[in-house]
């Protein structure tokens, strides 16, 4: 291959490529952001989905500050107390594009305090419009936030915050 620097390659094309990196393996993003300052900056824009497990939990506030375009947060932890705190952290973040929060595992009961905290964030509440709700998919249960909120507990393991 002819040696050719790709410095002329526009940011939006790099961003398209970075968005095709594996979403479930953060190492791809880790490598990209260590390549150069420009790559770091583009990769921060390109990150649309964040996986949160017990290891990343303490870093969440930093990650939410870094990846401003996050649309989906996938939560993979069973600790109920942690999920309340986690949702509270999300509610206090600047995640303006947030459209879905997905849970990997089934919870014994809904994180009510966390949901209440989310409902109190005007930005998050207003961003998750009713139209987007229909396109959201969840593994075991979902979280919907709209302008008016109600907590519904479904004994068949599903519960939602829905418009009323």
């Amino acid at each position: 291959m002819k040696k050719q620097a790709h410095g002329h390659f526009p940011d939006d094309c790099w961003e398209l490529i970075f968005q095709k990196l594996r979403e479930d393996d953060e190492r791809d993003l880790g490598s990209i952001s260590l390549v150069s300052k420009r790559f770091l900056s583009i990769s921060n824009q390109a990150k649309l989905r964040l996986n949160v497990n017990d290891g990343t939990l303490p870093l969440l506030p930093n990650l939410l500050r870094r990846f401003l375009h996050i649309g989906t947060i996938v939560i993979d932890t069973n600790a109920h107390k942690d999920i309340d705190r986690l949702l509270d952290q999300i509610s206090r973040s600047g995640a303006l594009n947030l459209q879905a929060i997905k849970f990997r595992s089934r919870l014994a009961e809904p994180p009510r305090d966390g949901f209440k905290a989310l409902a109190l964030n005007e930005n998050i509440k207003n961003n998750l419009k009713f139209e987007t709700v229909l396109s959201l998919s969840f593994l075991s249960f979902g979280l919907f936030v709209c302008k008016k909120l109600a907590l519904i507990w479904d004994p068949f393991s599903a519960f939602h915050l829905v418009c009323n």
């Binding site: 790709h6 095709k20 990196l21 791809d28 490598s31 952001s33 390549v35 150069s36």
Partner: peptide, 26 residues
């Protein structure tokens, strides 16, 4: 774009620099 993304899968950043001919400015 997917094909390009696939080629850097599992590659350390030094190798990604090589593949894309990007200069390290850190």
């Amino acid at each position: 774009a997917q094909k390009i993304a696939d080629t850097i899968k599992d590659k350390p950043h030094q190798e990604v620099r090589e593949i894309f001919h990007v200069e390290n400015d850190y």
